[in-house]
Design a protein around this nucleic acid. Structure first.
Lengths: 206, 206
DNA sequence: GTCTATATCTTGATAGAC
DNA sequence: GTCTATCAAGATATAGAC
């Protein structure tokens, strides 16, 4: 009707089933990685038959690709929001905060990404060398500018970004470990939010 | 001859082949995770036939278990070395340095560990809730003592340990990403060593 | 100790009835 | 659109010759 915008789902039921499938696929891919995941598992989680999955997506590969595509936008948006005109400390601490929230609210997405990079990023290489690198380079210049103005401590900007990623995503990716070590009665993400705010305040003080 | 000490390898050729197999298994498991890895791949990397692999290890599971067991010791030793009687800053920076070196020299081990935790630590749960947690609790007390004495900044000790893990292991686990973003002409691990030394100096200053 | 051959099960994907 | 049945390839593991 409205012409081909981009992908498959046209009717409402198709839209809904595609969503159900991707949701289930996210569960399984994020835990077992691409090769470790099976269509049987995804079908079971989705509550649909295996052939039905393949009615909506042409292949296992296509499901994975669909997830990665939507993931990248979600993942990079907070960094994209880093405003060169804002207050340096506010901007960076805001970015850290949003990344902690992402880890808390979308841990499966974080693990899907981690799985992909761990395996050498075979299905995301282009995005990482292109879109992601471009954005990091751009924001690294912003950080460098702030450092040159003496508004935040002088640190290698790209490694500073790596630190934010490593520290925030750790709580999603290594959730099994952090919970086991902290023991019951802890809210890892709440504690992480406070702790990382403190950490970056100290680190960035000129 | 000498009685059963612990595991399989007795003769020299057995010792050597077991090593070759574990080396190959580490390659494959660390990249694809347990379920994503196949004996065919491991056999090819090892340069041995598939049945020959299973002559030395009773199952795929057993190979993985053998790797995890030896991994845990390597992984915890540097933390175990943290000396309560030493200078706080030296001890912590020394630990960070050793962890960076581990990431540089044993990235596959780091990724094997990451894969296992990402999947919810199904084959390491006991070790994490036991040995690892015990050690962290013990060292957290040491850190807390130093903080109470005003010798380093007051921070949640367990989260401080998480930070060290996250920041150092990131360079091994996300190697594909860091190299892509940094571009050619960079030595990620050398830069990480300097950067993290600076970072923790600032963070721990009382 | 090592290999070829193979048993057995699982997996991604398709055919075709409904 | 959804299901049952099924195929062909790939998976772990074993049998048995050498």
């Amino acid at each position: 009707m409205t012409g081909a915008s981009d992908s498959k789902p046209r009717t409402r039921i198709q839209q809904k089933n595609s969503e159900t499938i991707l949701e289930a696929a996210l569960d399984v891919f994020s835990t077992y990685g691409f090769r470790g995941a099976t269509l049987d598992q995804i079908a079971e989680v989705a509550g649909l038959s295996k052939p039905n999955l393949l009615y909506y997506f042409p292949s296992k590969e296509a499901m994975h690709q669909a997830l990665l595509t939507r993931l990248l936008a979600t993942w990079l948006d907070p960094l994209r929001d880093l405003d060169p005109k804002g207050d340096p400390l506010d901007e960076i601490l805001g970015y850290v905060k949003r990344k902690v929230e992402l880890s808390r609210d979308f841990p499966r997405e974080s693990r899907l990404f981690a799985n992909e990079i761990l395996q050498g990023a075979p299905r995301m290489r282009d995005a990482i060398e292109g879109e992601l690198k471009t954005l990091v380079d751009e924001k690294a210049k912003v950080l460098q500018g702030w450092m040159d103005q003496g508004r935040i401590a002088r640190l290698p900007p790209v490694h500073l970004v790596f630190s934010i990623w490593a520290l925030t995503q750790h709580y999603a990716d290594f959730d099994a470990q952090t919970r086991a070590v902290l023991g019951a009665g802890h809210d890892p993400f709440a504690e992480a939010g406070d702790y990382l705010d403190t950490l970056f305040r100290k680190l960035l003080a000129p």
